[in-house]
């Protein structure tokens, strides 16, 4: 899938035949940055490259990563999704609560159904009613949080009989020696990466985000395309919620709080344009990993946990700046 994704990125990056250093940096800058980070952290802390540490980072990034996959679709279609953190809390609480009454299988099914229904509402509002996605999803962030609290009555949720269920498999199990969260993240990334890069639907997502009017003029059903992107995003959120619930077997109402910004950060770090029309699943995965390794690395070199928030955002803003600077060939805006 990385090959497919890279071909797609080559297609979209707009490089001319005379490949200049600038265009190379613009295209591959994120990978270079990734390598630089890894090397410098590895030099600073010997534990950094330890396989257990690496696996641990990827595992703890998996939930964020799964959500970022869906948001990549939404962002490429030219919209935003700020409701994913709040929606993830909802799925987690719902699946935990239903687990004890319906049993794990039905609980998971019901949770996916409800999460997708909320995704459909957002998709309808943004796609068919053409409401501004920032406003819709910011509103949904609060509304879903309210829904979650109403559902739970403000209480934490716990699975009563933790030993008597197979539900923990998604968060704590392993297959082929690989932790399930990583496996699910990888599988979903592969499938969605192919959908985006190789199917007609993926092409339509790029077209709608690149120029919605031109897409309409080419007979693409713009509303339906945007709607589907939000459904994909909701599906990813439900998966993330499942992993989260299964890992902890109990949860607070606020488990996903603030994650919408981290998710968006990973997508932007991966180089997707907030204007829509560009980005790839592969790059988003890199963005997710960079975020995870930065946070891990900062801890390992002994910085206080809270410093990571500051550093993360400095890095994101730098990345966006350099990306834009490479595109226009100068560091400062031509119209100052």
């Amino acid at each position: 899938m990385s090959e497919a994704a890279q071909e797609r990125s080559a297609r979209n990056a707009g490089g001319s035949s005379g490949a200049k250093v600038g265009t190379f940096l613009a295209k591959q800058g994120i990978l270079i940055a990734f390598v630089l980070f890894m090397v410098s952290f590895a030099l600073a802390s010997e534990r950094f490259l330890d396989p257990d540490n690496i696996l641990g980072v990827i595992r703890s990034s998996a939930i964020l990563g799964v959500m970022a996959l869906g948001v990549t679709f939404v962002v490429i279609s030219g919209n935003l999704d700020l409701s994913v953190g709040s929606l993830m809390s909802f799925s987690t609480i719902v699946v935990l609560d239903l687990h004890d009454t319906l049993g794990p299988a039905l609980a998971i099914l019901a949770m996916f159904g409800m999460t997708l229904a909320i995704g459909a509402v957002i998709g309808f509002l943004v796609g068919y009613l053409r409401l501004n996605s920032l406003i819709v999803t910011l509103g949904m962030l609060s509304a879903i949080h309210g829904l979650t609290l109403t559902w739970s009555g403000g209480q934490n949720m716990d699975i009563a009989d933790k030993a008597g269920t197979w539900f923990a498999v998604f968060g704590q199990g392993r297959a082929l020696g690989i932790p399930m969260p990583i496996l699910m993240f990888a599988l979903l990334a592969a499938v969605l990466g192919i959908v985006l890069a190789k199917t007609p639907f993926g092409r339509k997502v790029y077209a709608v985000g690149g120029n919605g009017t031109a897409a309409t003029f080419s007979g693409i059903r713009r509303a339906r395309t945007v709607f589907t992107c939000y459904l994909i995003s909701a599906f990813c959120v439900a998966t993330a919620g499942l992993i989260q619930a299964s890992r902890s077997m109990g949860s607070q109402n606020t488990v996903g709080q603030g994650m919408e910004l981290e998710v968006l950060a990973a997508v932007i770090l991966g180089g997707a344009s907030l204007m829509g029309g560009s980005g790839t699943i592969f790059k988003t995965v890199i963005g997710v990993l960079i975020l995870g390794f930065i946070q891990n690395g900062l801890l390992l070199i002994g910085l206080q946990f809270y410093v990571q928030f500051v550093v993360t955002w400095i890095i994101i803003i730098l990345a966006v700046w350099l990306d834009i600077a490479a595109k226009r060939g100068r560091l400062l805006s031509p119209i100052a």
Binding site: R11, F217, G219
Partner: peptide, 24 residues
């Protein structure tokens, strides 16, 4: 530029856009 083309897309993808669903 506003209605005819997705400027950030390549030549081929633009040209096949209306029928991309059938070229599978």
């Amino acid at each position: 530029k506003g209605q005819g083309l997705v400027l950030g897309m390549n030549c081929r993808d633009n040209m096949t856009l209306p029928q991309v669903g059938d070229l599978t």
